[in-house]
Simulated assay, not measured.
Amino acid sequence: MINDNISGNMSDSKRRSLTTYNHITYLLYVISYFTAGLLWVVPIIMNYAKRHDADGSWLATHFDWQIKTFWYSIVWFIIGILIITFALGGFGVSMLADSSNIAIGSFLLVSVGFIIMGLTFIWHLYRIIRGWIALTDGRPVP
């Protein structure tokens, strides 16, 4: 017997349920911006919990899209934080060594870290909006 999910013939009620579920996870990602990221973990857990229910359907792309968005955002955000941390250490050294060259380099490095974090924020928001629009239109995301 062929699994309904694999054949793409998911029952209408299950499809509606998973679509609503995805709407909720997209909404939680947006709300997480207003909670200093505290809610960021909730939708990723939700995605992992239900992703296999959508296997073989266009809804599976939304689960994967959100999971990839989360992990890539985490990686780039951490890279930005590490660069800033390293640069602030260099700034401290420049104060002790009384070196304006190190201070300028540290300031530029801090700027690079903040740019990475800012671009990550914009990219994350773009992916959530793009995915949510596709879900609303009833189509998969790439």
Rank of each mutant, 00 (worst) to 15 (best):
I6Y: 03
G8C: 07
G8Q: 11
G8T: 04
N9F: 03
S13V: 09
S13M: 05
K14P: 06
R15P: 11
R16P: 08
L18C: 11
L18I: 02
T20L: 15
I24K: 14
T25Q: 10
T25H: 04
Y26S: 15
Y26F: 15
Y26M: 14
L28W: 02
L28N: 13
V30N: 06
I31W: 04
S32C: 10
S32H: 11
Y33T: 11
F34N: 13
T35C: 11
A36I: 04
G37A: 09
L38M: 14
L39N: 12
L39A: 13
V42N: 11
V42H: 15
V42K: 12
V42R: 15
V42D: 06
I44M: 11
I44K: 08
I45V: 07
I45A: 10
N47E: 00
N47R: 13
R51E: 06
R51L: 05
A54D: 07
A54T: 02
D55R: 14
D55A: 07
G56R: 04
W58T: 00
W58S: 08
W58K: 13
L59C: 10
T61M: 08
H62Q: 06
H62Y: 01
F63Q: 12
D64T: 13
D64P: 08
Q66P: 14
Q66I: 05
Q66V: 04
T69V: 02
F70A: 12
F70W: 12
I74K: 12
I74H: 05
V75G: 14
I78A: 10
I83K: 03
F86G: 14
F86H: 04
A87I: 07
G90Q: 03
G90R: 08
F91E: 00
F91V: 05
V93A: 00
A97D: 00
D98Y: 03
S99D: 03
N101V: 04
N101L: 09
A103V: 06
I104E: 01
S106V: 03
F107C: 05
L109Q: 02
L109R: 02
V110I: 02
V110C: 07
S111H: 05
I115Y: 07
I116C: 06
L119Y: 13
L119H: 10
T120V: 09
T120C: 11
H124W: 06
L125H: 09
Y126N: 14
Y126V: 15
I129H: 09
W132Y: 14
W132A: 15
I133N: 12
I133D: 08
I133G: 14
A134T: 03
A134H: 08
L135K: 09
L135E: 01
L135D: 01
D137Y: 00
D137T: 02
V141K: 08
P142R: 06
P142E: 02
